[in-house]
Design a protein around this nucleic acid. Sequence first.
DNA 1: CAAGTCGATTGACAAAAACTCAACTGACAA
DNA 2: TTGTCAGTTGAGTTTTTGTCAATCGACTTG
Lengths: 300, 300
Amino acid sequence: MALPSLNGMRAFEAAARLGSIKDAAEELHLTPSAVSRHIRALERNLGQDLFERGFRQITPTIRGSYYARGLSEAFEAIWRATDDVSVSDGPSHNKAQRVRVLCVPAVLNLWLADRLPNFRRLHPSVDLEISSSGKRANFDLAIVDEFVYKAGPALTLLIPLLLTPVCAPSLLEGPVPLRSPADLVNHHLIHECETMRWKRWLEQEGVLDTTPKSSTTLDDCTLIMREAINGAGIALADTMMAQDLLQQGKLVAPFRARHTYPAGIYLHQRRSIGNKPGTGLFQDWLLAEIDDHKRTMAIP
Amino acid sequence: MALPSLNGMRAFEAAARLGSIKDAAEELHLTPSAVSRHIRALERNLGQDLFERGFRQITPTIRGSYYARGLSEAFEAIWRATDDVSVSDGPSHNKAQRVRVLCVPAVLNLWLADRLPNFRRLHPSVDLEISSSGKRANFDLAIVDEFVYKAGPALTLLIPLLLTPVCAPSLLEGPVPLRSPADLVNHHLIHECETMRWKRWLEQEGVLDTTPKSSTTLDDCTLIMREAINGAGIALADTMMAQDLLQQGKLVAPFRARHTYPAGIYLHQRRSIGNKPGTGLFQDWLLAEIDDHKRTMAIP
DNA sequence: CAAGTCGATTGACAAAAACTCAACTGACAA
DNA sequence: TTGTCAGTTGAGTTTTTGTCAATCGACTTG
């Protein structure tokens, strides 16, 4: 199925947000006529009414209101990304000591967050701005995963990902055996939303029937870990990310770890360090902290 | 500044993702010519090169690769939202016991997550799929905030938001006084990304100079709380969301709470309960759990 | 109670994109 | 040396998108 017109979506989103075709038209520098057409076309395309037409007003249907919300967020993301990329490199941010760090959620939540107080203690004058949602593209340092398209230089490999099943220790003593990877499918598996990680990991271990008996799906790595700790099931985690929890004895890793994708966590520094002293401080601290951690890791 | 052409962005995103204009053209059912033009127009519009043109290939610039990543996510969100809204109501999901819950991150992380094991214990056969990222619009139950445009019926008010500053108890005994709201600006304030919450709250308390001495910005409510607990500064939280942490003594609320926006958390149930027994179970459990919590809350 | 108002809608047409085709480029491979 | 093939560009065409003017209809105003 072809995606309906993006401009139509934008018109609909504005109309839903503003509750008025006239206002939407104004915002988009169009005539109400054009907006009205766009919306009609979109509705025809989707086969769904998005507005209920009242006396001379429009109100989104329930379905339409959720759609509009989704679109709003997406367009906002596009706007931000575009704004970030189109801005020239000039020193538009006068806050010299503000360091903007972009970080993938897993690393931030499972590893970095608990180490931030250290940094703050060492460098109290540096204002950190940390974003995990990927909503910003403007940063001084970025901690990213393999998915950044072939981004070239200025990238340092921080951590090669090494995935392993983890679960609460109590699960090992439960009634369902957990001795070989094949036993995993008889347990409750915790999925990260939209990923095929479990399936791929199981296939790599030679497990043929990769459909688990039952599962939960969450799209937040923190919650996945919390669920695992609570004994709800078995999650698939990177050894380094899970290390803190493994050491605290909240989780155990019953099987060996495997590189499931050719993946890793990279550091990418955008501006030259000279510009902002805080950037250098953070980067040095980060590398030292990782080094430190690697040395204390049980699994090499 | 006007947003550049969305179709141009789509062409660029596809080309960046596939690493080829030809392939992008194929995916979009266009000729390479059209895609090439789109990208050129976009680059001209942004005043930035997005690709480095090689012998007969293209590679994204660093800047371009981040832009592409941002766009990819946004378009994926649009695609999902559109897919969700255009699908007819038919029972396309045969997993009768799978309950899809959409939940705003704050509620999920600060309140719901720690109560999920209860539910699982009571109803082990119900597979929960919980999404906080707003990436899905297809759900059985949604726990949403005020931002759902005028969505009409089938909404139950779960929690009216009541915001109050919270911080680690140790901060009250620190060298910087914290006796009236006006003292707040002398402390390190923890911001939720992109919101004006702090500013509005301070204004409502009659504080004139609302610019804090120093601040941190995070876009994840879990991390905001973690930072507050670690004594890094003062966060603005809903009393109910923070209740667990207040009761555990990890946080204190030195001032009174205020309704800063006319906001609240609502429950929205899409399909009729009859269709999926699990939905009813979850809803009943949720309402009971909230009731329970309200009764034990110190601040009414 | 009739005329006026204003937002949404529609028909007809005009402007502006978006797209294609065909020709061109240039590094590589055979 | 020549064929190839991804990318680019010129010129023209199609299609989309937008405007203008007219219509509708409920509320409101005199």
